[in-house]
Design a protein around this nucleic acid. Structure first.
Length: 159
DNA sequence: GCCAACGTTGGC
DNA sequence: GCCAACGTTGGC
């Protein structure tokens, strides 16, 4: 049995919020549209069903971790890359040789109190190495170390 | 809305 | 293979 991993998935609430996920059938959606190679590699090579991830709202008034999702598929080719009608269309991704990948994601929990980035930044020491806190980072899919995962969860218990 | 930081592109 | 130009991300 493989060790499960922890992740952080960013989304702009203007385009897809945690409430949008909650409204999906089975509270499950395809995490499509990721167009960054490093993030792609995580999706394609490392995510496994059963992994957990934080759902993060970015590029909004109060950037925050707003809940938890479960990864419920392995990585598989992102069909939006093949669809000329899609905003995520990429002609260089061929069906025979897909360039972009995605996973399915299910809502596990929406926090009653979101955890603002501002608050996380108060724990530089405890969260040292967390990609989210690194200057200028732009990854929309990133791993979270187990000790960071646990620490962040503990913050939600004392809002 | 601003702008720094970043990843990608393409000319050379 | 370098690197300037460009478009995008995302906090503020």
């Amino acid at each position: 049995m493989n060790q499960s991993r922890y992740w952080l998935l960013k989304s702009e609430p203007k385009s897809f919020s945690i409430d949008d996920l909650a409204a999906c059938p089975e509270q499950t959606t395809q995490w499509d549209g990721v167009r960054n190679y490093q993030a792609r590699n995580y999706l394609r090579d490392q995510m496994q069903p059963g992994d957990l991830g934080f759902f993060y709202h970015s590029n909004c008034k109060q950037p925050s971790i707003v809940g938890i999702v479960e990864i419920c598929s392995a990585g598989y080719p992102d069909p939006t890359a093949f669809d000329p009608e899609s905003p995520y269309f990429d002609p260089k991704s061929r069906i025979e040789r897909p360039r972009w990948f995605m996973v399915d994601v299910r809502l596990v929990e929406k926090f009653s109190h979101p955890l603002p980035l501002k608050r996380l930044q108060q724990y530089r020491k405890e969260l040292e190495g967390l990609t989210l806190l690194q200057r200028g980072h732009r990854l929309s899919v990133m791993p979270v170390a187990p000790e960071h995962w646990r620490f962040i969860l503990s913050l939600t218990e004392k809002p």
